[in-house]
Nucleic acid binder design. Structure first.
Lengths: 269, 269
DNA sequence: AACATCGGTTCATATAGTGAACCAATAAGG
DNA sequence: CCTTATTGGTTCACTATATGAACCGATGTT
């Protein structure tokens, strides 16, 4: 890990829940030496990526990121295009919806929308989504670059008792996704949370990210699952379209098959 | 300069005009070794601050900054509060308006608004504003922390024939600002651009940034100057208010005096 | 075919980062 | 009032890490 990576990794500890962190606390969170952490903070501060609250001496994210985000979004608009479909997805399903972008080997959370329907709901507050333990990640492994699977196998941290931590289990869920067109994660990241995801594509025709719904386990029924799948398809088409891509026919075919199985079940009894 | 600083400084070369840069070009812009630049890019890429266009191999700002900007803005809202008053300022004056934030010893551009009134107008595309050569910078030196003057004197780069490059000249324009309540820069950063700025304050009561109007030199008359001053006062009050601060009485008094001199001149002939 | 780009890699060299120990300041506890 | 445990910040011997000239293969121009 380079110094640059170590320093920038400090930024990941700041969140909406904990926007300001003191030196000691951050040192503990980052599990690094205090002097090192301090020097990194000073370096980040010089560039405006961190600023210090002059009253409390605590550190927070600085203004430099605002300009960068503006350049990025004006240049490669992703957030704007995802926002409206995501809102619709959250409203239609009554669950928390979020979209993520694949950049290199990591999946970055782009934006998340919470529905107002239930008082208990999933909250997405990770910047990076683990590939092996989230619906979005499994979806990415299923339809993204083949070499990602290696990267994912290298880091299979356990989050819950249900997290797939051996390559065989992972291969199985990825295979299921490749058969259905949807990624699923059942209590893989957190107990009581079910995830459902569909792939997103950009103008290059390659997978560019994923759109997902996170639902509370106790609410998940077959009816809700079907609704989520239907809405995920709509959201995926719209977001993919706004990113200048189109959903590959093969994926559309998988989706149609998966939805058909629900209809069959309806007719069965 | 630490490695962290060197690596992060690479990000400053990306702009709306040049959102993607190849390795060689970026190496030349940053005036550094190619191998070093490459390694820095790879490190930034790992963290999602940079991503590579898989088709052209060119680099661009990555998605990680989006999340950070969101955390920052949800936590310390600055952009949102400045946007509306800035738009109004641009419309009312017919010139380009922008706001900046002081973080440590540097002034970061927060957001800029261009008016539609004229086809020739100033464009703000710097992330960092030089303290000695811009109206905002002079305003910051006049009403901000006293030790900034030292930092400013340490780097007095020449941009035009009118740039103040010796401490005495700088002290004079800062003194003028302290007397009038407004920062001014006449062709200091670019030929043909006049800048006018007013200070901004936050909940701590300290200077937190500046709001400014950049006008094309040929359009600047006494009438326009007065209009700009009047509108700057309104914008400064509004932005300062939305940042949880209030304009100090001493500044308000300076502004009142400055506007009074215009009225006297009107009566004179 | 010769030359000039490009992105990316190698490896000896030496510069830059590291962290245990140390301050000074503040605050809680007895 | 003195002790103890925090806090943010600093020092300096040690060594891990960054550096850059030279190199590579690919692509593009003349």
């Amino acid at each position: 890990m380079s110094v640059v990576a170590k320093a920038l990794a400090l930024l990941e500890h700041f969140s909406i829940q904990t926007p300001e962190l003191g030196l000691s606390r951050l040192t503990r969170l980052a599990k690094r030496d205090k002097a090192t952490t301090y020097r990194h903070l000073v370096a980040l501060q010089e560039l405006g990526f961190i600023e210090q609250n002059p009253e409390t001496k605590a550190y927070r994210i600085g203004p430099a990121v605002l300009h960068l985000a503006e350049v990025r979004e004006k240049t490669v608009p992703r957030r704007d295009g995802a926002l409206a479909p995501l809102q619709r997805l959250a409203d239609a399903t009554g669950e928390t919806a979020h979209a993520s972008i694949l950049s290199g080997p990591t999946l970055h959370t782009l934006v998340s929308c919470e529905a107002q329907a239930h008082s208990i709901r999933a909250v997405i507050d990770l910047q990076k989504l683990p590939l092996h333990a989230t619906a979005s990640g499994i979806c990415t492994l299923a339809f993204g670059p083949a070499d990602l699977l290696e990267a994912a196998k290298a880091d299979m941290a356990r989050f819950t008792a249900h997290t797939a931590t051996d390559p065989a289990a992972l291969a199985e869920v990825v295979g299921t996704a490749q058969g259905s067109g949807f990624g699923r994660s059942e209590r893989g990241l957190e107990d009581d949370i079910y995830g459902f995801a569909a792939p997103l594509f950009d103008q290059t025709g390659q997978l560019a990210g994923a759109v997902a719904v996170a639902s509370v386990a106790s609410r998940v029924t077959e009816d809700l699952t079907r609704l989520i799948y239907q809405e995920l398809i709509i959201a995926s088409r719209e977001i993919t379209h706004s990113w200048g891509g189109s959903v590959p026919a093969a994926i559309e075919a998988l989706w149609a098959d998966t939805l058909a199985t629900f209809k069959q079940k309806d007719l069965a009894p």
